[in-house]
Design a protein around this nucleic acid. Structure first.
Length: 457
RNA sequence: GGCGCCGUGGCCAAGUGGCAAGGCAGAGCUCUGCAAAAGCUUCACCGCCGGUUCGAAUCCGGCCGGCGCCUCCA
């Protein structure tokens, strides 16, 4: 398959994998767990989950590593304000993250490294950079020499000129940088901050070094795919390239840099620091997992999407349509309609830089065939099986609505049976009263040629 | 200021040289006691202007209108 690579600006063929075992090495930058996850993180998780599922489906083995940056300025600030240890706060939010992505049917990564568990590797990494002249200690800090790495090479990912960056460089008079462009690999501890011993005294890792160290140790010197949100292109991924390529002497660090566009809310980017976010749990409660996924996947991962209730409701209706088709009673036995070519169309779309909107169009086409076969008394099983298979690659569950309660089911069955008798007696007013009453309680009753069915939820 | 992106039917969104996928919403019909679900039919010439080409939504130039990033951020 082909995936757009941010560094070259072109689509690149994914295979063959770099590693001799043929396993695709995929490192995805995860979250800084200082607060609840929002739907922007959901989009990110869904995009890489779909890539992962698709590779699985194609039989391409993949190792997916996603980190938690659990040492961070905001984490420290917030923990201090709450009066709890930084690690406790991080763990709470990491647990929340795992819960939310599980609720979205996101497959867990194979590894979830944390900075707090990587500090020794990070220190080794920084020492290596110092040895090679790419980094220098100053005070209790250690900085990376951007200009030694090289301007054009440093600006390549973000397509910027190093001298333009200079104007935006953050200048903190307490830092002892040789050059304003240099960035911190290690920060000396301030009073009250969590810290770790190092050759440069007590301190903690800077923001970018953890990912370089984790990727190196979990996946190796060169990897196939490095992913993350588009907001990480600069400075985070830019600095990762500088660190890793300087340390290993190997280039490129990642064959494909894959970035998802950011989710917008109204016209503003949804962001934790802007405080304008919708949490994942909120969205899931309102619309459900399949609707959220459908919303994300109806646009291409590199196009920004705007979160809105209208869009989510439309997605929910679409999800209902797919689910209905998946639950059509497979009673027909005439020769089924041909589904030839649909699987290929799906694969072609996905191969083309994960074109999920086109892939979804195929899924909807399959749903249409299911419904048509049903209406024509044909065997719907082949189309239905394909529907479930392809929807599954996209991580859609198409699961039946949650039954209100198992205890209620026999009573609902009884009411529905009673209503069937009323209908047989053509007592329409009474039968409608039963249906309306059940509807108010959240139970939908449908009369079909094969009898009456009901769903709750 | 620098870099980049976008403008396709009522809404969302693919398509990036050969008569415009899909979803949601709407209309008509079919089925149905009614309803729901479903099927069939119907609904766009692609921001504006110019150019290249046998042919452009798709390439080039200009204009108008949105937006993102530029060291907190998926």
């Amino acid at each position: 398959m082909r995936i757009h690579d941010t560094l070259s600006g072109t689509e690149k063929e994914l295979q063959p994998a770099l590693a001799p075992d043929g396993v695709v090495r995929m490192y995805v930058c995860g979250v800084t767990p200082y607060s609840e996850s929002h739907v922007g993180h959901a989009l990110h998780a869904i995009v890489f989950d779909v890539l992962r599922r698709y590779l699985d489906w194609r039989g391409i083995p993949v190792k997916h590593v996603q980190n938690f940056t659990d040492i961070d300025d905001k984490l420290i600030d917030r923990a201090q304000r709450l009066g709890i240890p930084m690690q406790d706060l991080a763990e709470q939010n990491i647990e929340d993250y795992h819960r939310q992505i599980a609720a979205m049917n996101v497959l867990p990564a194979h590894e979830y490294p944390k900075v707090t568990e990587t500090v020794p590797h990070i220190i080794d990494f920084i020492m290596g950079l110092i040895d090679k002249g790419f980094a220098y200690p100053a005070g209790g800090d250690v900085y990376y020499r951007v200009r030694v790495f090289g301007g054009p090479r440093y600006g390549a990912l973000s397509k910027r000129d190093i001298d333009d960056l200079l104007s935006g460089a953050r200048i903190d008079p307490t830092e002892l940088k040789e050059d304003p462009l240099d960035f911190a690999l290690w920060k000396a501890a301030k009073p009250g901050e969590p810290s770790w011993p190092s050759p440069w005294g007590l301190g903690r890792p800077g923001w970018h070094i953890e990912c370089s160290a984790m990727a190196l140790h979990s996946l190796g010197e060169q990897i196939d795919i490095h992913g993350g949100g588009a907001d990480l292109i600069f400075p985070h991924h830019t600095n990762e390239i500088a660190q890793t390529e300087a340390y290993t002497g190997q280039a490129p660090f990642a064959r494909i840099w894959m970035h998802n566009a950011l989710l917008q809310l109204g016209s503003e980017k949804m962001s934790k620091s802007l405080g304008n976010f919708v949490s994942i749990s909120e969205a899931l409660e309102k619309y459900g997992s399949d609707a959220l996924r459908l919303f994300v996947l109806t646009s291409h991962y590199r196009s920004p999407v705007t979160y809105s209730d209208d869009a989510l409701e439309a997605a929910r209706s679409g999800a209902d349509r797919l689910r209905n088709a998946a639950f059509v009673e497979p009673t027909g036995d005439l020769e089924p309609a041909s589904i030839a070519g649909l699987r290929e169309r799906f694969q072609e779309a996905m191969d083309n830089d994960l074109n999920t909107p086109q892939a979804l169009a195929v899924v909807f086409d399959v749903a249409k065939i299911v419904n048509r076969d049903r209406d024509q008394k044909k065997n719907v099983r082949p189309a239905q099986a394909l529907l479930r298979e392809l929807a599954g690659v996209l991580g859609l569950t198409l699961s039946a609505p949650e039954s209100a309660s198992q205890e209620a089911a026999p009573f609902i069955d009884l009411l529905v049976a009673l209503r069937t008798d009323l209908r047989a007696a053509k007592l329409w007013a009474l039968s409608d009263r039963v249906r309306d009453g059940l509807a108010e309680l959240g139970v939908t009753v449908k009369d079909g040629p094969e009898g009456t069915t009901w769903t709750a939820g």
